[in-house]
Simulated assay, not measured.
Amino acid sequence: MPQQDNLSDSNSAGSAPSVFFLSGIPGLEAMHLWISIPFCSVFTVALLGNCTILYVLKTEPSLHKPMYYFLAMLAVVDLVLSTTIIPKTLSIFWFNSREISFNACLVQMFFLHSFFNVESGVLVAMAFDRYVAICNPLKYTTILTNSVIAIIGLVVLARPVFIRIPMFIMLKRLSFCRSHVIAHCYCEHMAVVKLACGNTRFNDIYGLFLTLFIVGQDLMFITMSYVKILKTVLSLASKEEQLKAFGTCISHLCAILIVYTPMVLSAVFHRFGHLVAPHIHVLMAIFYFIFPPMMNPIVYGVKTKEIRSKVRLRFRRKNF
């Protein structure tokens, strides 16, 4: 009883809790061991796929081109996202390891939200790469130099990191006088904010604004790039040239669908939250972060001829 009183007093005074407890998937706790099987499979595919992509891109000089530099960035981001969320989730499913410190919770949240926005920015950079390659092919190498690619990479990384900092500073200052149990498998921003007492309007509005601003801005740039690409492709003389030019964009278009479709579905589920069971919310939120890391290397491995041929060549060398 004295410990509970001290905890209540410290929370009412506005101090942050030392630890949170992650519930896992609400309502499906008895099935955690079975649910861990597809989660572990997805994580394994994501690790193997993205590491293979990075290895092939690093060891094949013929792939040291702007398009593949951006693909390497995408693979790194996918590795960060998957390793940020899945190991802790599996530890909950396998070992019932639900405890996470407040600071570790903030770090996990920061990496998840920031690097999802980084992934969105990389897709914009890849759209710009396709635009230059198709609309200005003669200037491709002079526009997308190594220094320009490095600058684009730094901007893509810095943009979400810096604009997300105020949100986490405000979250750090909140007091938590309610339950310390987060009804989730990871530290999701709104799930943590719901546990706070006092005024959380800034966190609610700023978090929503960032999502709409970053994603809306990125989708606008991607759409503008593809409108110009489409005009250029349709102006080509033969059908064969048109198909060849547009074929270089197929992998990128698939990546856009893979990244943004789960986000849209998650937003729809949040909008109609009162009609959806809590475990569906959590599963969709996890799907939102782990589906792209699994699918992106598969799509680029299957759809990109150069990568597919190099991977086959590597495996043949190892077999002999």
Rank of each mutant, 00 (worst) to 15 (best):
A127W: 00
F168V: 03
T145F: 13
L171T: 02
A133C: 10
A158R: 09
T141N: 13
M190N: 15
G153R: 02
V122H: 07
N136K: 12
M190E: 14
P160F: 04
V156Q: 10
C135S: 10
E119P: 06
C197M: 02
F162S: 06
L210A: 06
N199T: 04
A183D: 12
I214M: 11
E188I: 03
Y140G: 05
S175E: 11
K194F: 13
F176G: 01
I165A: 09
V124R: 00
A183E: 13
L154M: 15
A183S: 12
I165F: 09
I205V: 15
L123V: 06
R178N: 14
R201P: 02
I149R: 03
G121E: 00
E188Y: 07
P166Q: 05
V156R: 03
P160A: 11
S175H: 11
N146L: 13
M190V: 14
I134W: 02
V193E: 06
I165K: 05
V148R: 12
I182N: 04
M126N: 03
C185Q: 00
I214E: 07
C197N: 04
L212V: 15
A127S: 12
Y131S: 07
F209A: 11
C185E: 00
T223F: 07
Y131G: 03
P166M: 01
V215K: 01
M126R: 07
